[in-house]
Design a protein around this nucleic acid. Structure first.
Lengths: 116, 116
DNA sequence: CCATTGTTTCGACGTCTGTGAAATCAAGGC
DNA sequence: GCCTTGATTTCACAGACGTCGAAACAATGG
């Protein structure tokens, strides 16, 4: 619902002067950080990255100590900020890491702190 | 109180194989992200970084649309994870950015996602 | 059509969080 | 000593969050 448009973020921009951040950018970056502000979501993303393949919800549930609905909840949060990508295949949904988030985090830090 | 020891994190390490993360590391990285999971804290850190100097709480209060106790609360959260450093000078306390957090965020992302 | 399997959504519960007002503490100046 | 100024802590409250179980939804196979 409240998905974020990644193309307008600093993810794909190179300029990064150390000026003040707009309130909108601050909210965007905070939303990115909030998506990973839970240990189980960090483990979930790390699991998907380590497996290097798209996984179903059932496979993930078998690897994490939380219930199915909670995994679905976390996947929704990660998908809303596009850290994971979802694709329905028949009766199941496969989730995989969005490799672009490898760049957006350092870019957010540079935007916040300026590059000295 | 629940401060985090930065020396045991991946901030100062270069190796970063794409293996699974320990639960403790996942919690540590989640704590880092949680510290910036609020728009006002992002703006606060950006303000300190843009000014490029140590600021008192009063100066920060004059620049952000929140009260003094709330600024102090946010500064405590940022200081607990060492994103800002505090130093008492006489009757006031000066806060400044810890430049090391420019590296720890990309390092955390690499540890979670592996470097492909 | 019904049954089954995988996934999402809903309802509920306890916990945590962001905020401000008020109280408290710390350090100087009178 | 008392008073003033700056900062932290305490208290309270509304809202959000993580978790689970149950219900609802989707897609396939009988």
């Amino acid at each position: 619902m409240t998905s974020i448009d990644y193309r307008r973020s600093s993810m794909n921009e190179t300029e990064c002067e150390p000026g003040p951040l707009s309130h909108e950018d601050a909210a965007t970056y905070a939303a990115w950080f909030k998506a990973l502000a839970d240990p189980m979501r960090v483990r979930l993303l790390n699991l998907l990255a380590a497996e290097r393949r798209a996984m179903t919800v059932g496979e993930i549930v078998a690897r994490l100590p939380i219930g199915q609905s909670t995994v679905s909840h976390h996947l929704r949060i990660l998908a809303e900020v596009r850290f994971v990508l979802a694709e329905r295949q028949g009766t199941s949904t496969r989730y995989e890491v969005n490799g672009a988030c490898l760049e957006c985090f350092p870019a957010a830090v540079r935007a916040i702190m300026g590059q000295p």
